[in-house]
Amino acid sequence: MTEFELIEQAQQGDKEAYIELIRIHQRTVEKFAFQCGVHNCDLADVSQEVFVKLYRFLHQFKHDRFTTWLYKITLNATRDYYRKEQREQAKEELLSALQHIPSASAEKHVLNFEEDRLLHNAIQTLDEKYRYPLVLFYFHELKYEEIAEVLGISLSTVKVRILRAKEKLKEVLLEEGSVENG
């Protein structure tokens, strides 16, 4: 069964088809949520929220790109996660603590290498307007047009934000001393 057929089945209330759709896309959702700053221990909850929301308005889906739609919902769920749980503050404290004790993190169980954890944490310090396009470009290989669609911004803004995100990330990495200048 193709993805489109699965969507059609799910629209008609076929829960098994919907479960299959979830299986196809859950890694994308979980990875994106994690890269956007959701903690490892909350990934299942946030992803569950995403797929519940997705189901609620699945009947509205026509011929749009399903994954673009999914990214949008995940993004909103991630933002809600921050606000509802007031995680931003906790995140800052965590990141601040991580600068001194880099390995004492829940992310340690997810990212095995110290270098990866440092980079992951550095990405989390970026403002969301830089973080999201960077993540979608580098880790999800979305085209600029797709990023523009997901984030609801213009193509040129996407380009500028990715450039700025890279600059900022390099600054953070240099400040942390995890790379050498040059």
Partner: peptide, 18 residues
């Protein structure tokens, strides 16, 4: 390299829960 590490993350959600 980070992307590869992300790709290794095990799925956590049980679709049945949804």
């Amino acid at each position: 390299l980070l992307k590869k590490s992300y790709d290794r993350i095990e799925p956590q959600l049980d679709p049945v829960d949804v």
